[in-house]
Every structure is written in structure tokens, then in C-alpha cells.
Design a protein around this nucleic acid. Structure first.
Length: 150
DNA sequence: GCCAACGTTGGC
DNA sequence: GCCAACGTTGGC
């Protein structure tokens, strides 16, 4: 029984097309404790809404699947990486990543505005005011509603 | 580019 | 441990 998630990425940095090209990619660069903790909860086979943020329009563009559970994010101890964090070391890693596999790109982007306008999704963390989490759990009812409706 | 919301840092 | 200052996110 898979769990469901939503993960945000800026398409300029990493888009669903990039994932489609690579088929499998690590999800690195997460530097938020709450998001990290959610990643640690992910299991192989979990399904993920791929969300494009900071673009016009923002929204869900497709689906990915977890193929490797959380392991240390090596970019955190690479001084040349934009994601470098001096407090993270190979001996004592602070940040983690998972590997995702491409599943499907949707024929169209489902916009944040649509999701906000959907009364059945009022409790979706994504549409809550001030939500800045880049990774969040999605319950089964919400997941199935979104898959069915859009 | 603006700004609201939120997370993190650091002085005390 | 509190909280003000600062930085970041992310929609518009």
C-alpha cells in the first residue's frame, strides 16, 4: 500500500521533463527539516505528485515514484555545491534525499488556482494559506480525487 | 518586483 | 528558552 506525497521543484532548476529524460533521479538539495523528515518516511513504491513552483502558472504536472529510500545528500558536504552546508558531514549527515522514477507527465498542468477552487481539497496542505513546505504528504482520498478529476 | 508568511539565527 | 531580526519561499 503506497503512501502519497507532493514534491515541489522550480522547473528552471529541475522539471518533470528533466526527470522524464533521466527516468531516475535523486531529489537533492532539500534543506528544510520538516521536508527532510517527510522524505525519511518515504518508502519504495510511494507515489508523488510532481509540482512546478515559482512559475506561471504553478501546479501539478505529473507523477513520480519513489525508487530509493532516504540516504545522505552528498551535495550538503560539497563546498562547490549551491546546497553546501558546513554543518553536514559524511560522518554525521544532516540532509537526505530519495531517488524518484518518472511515471507520467500529464497532458496539461493542473493549476494551483484550480486546486484552491476545489471544495474537496480545502484541507490539502498545499492550498492552505502560507504553506511553504516543499514536500508534503497527501492523503489517499485527496490523491484519488485529484487523479480522477484532472 | 512586491510582500505575506514562515523558518532560522543569535543575543540575552 | 524567549523573541527580534533577518533570510527565504513562492504566489501574484
Amino acid at each position: 500500500m503506497p503512501n502519497y506525497w507532493l514534491m515541489k521543484s522550480e522547473p528552471d532548476a529541475f522539471s518533470i521533463d528533466d526527470l522524464a529524460d533521466m527516468q531516475v533521479s535523486p531529489w537533492d538539495g532539500v534543506r528544510n527539516y520538516q521536508a527532510r523528515n517527510f522524505m525519511k518516511d518515504m518508502q519504495v513504491g510511494d507515489l508523488v505528485f510532481f509540482y512546478h513552483s515559482s512559475c506561471k502558472p504553478a501546479g501539478i504536472v505529473g507523477v513520480a515514484k519513489v525508487v530509493k529510500e532516504a540516504y545522505p545528500d552528498h551535495t550538503s558536504w560539497d563546498p562547490n555545491s549551491p546546497y553546501y552546508d558546513a554543518k553536514s558531514t559524511p560522518q554525521n549527515p544532516r540532509w537526505f534525499m530519495v531517488d524518484l522514477a518518472f511515471v507520467e507527465k500529464w497532458p496539461r498542468l493542473v493549476t494551483l488556482a484550480e486546486l484552491k477552487a476545489d471544495a474537496l481539497l480545502a484541507e490539502l496542505p498545499l492550498v492552505k494559506k502560507g504553506s511553504r513546505l516543499s514536500i508534503m504528504p497527501i492523503n489517499k482520498a485527496h490523491w484519488e480525487h485529484i487523479i480522477k478529476t484532472y
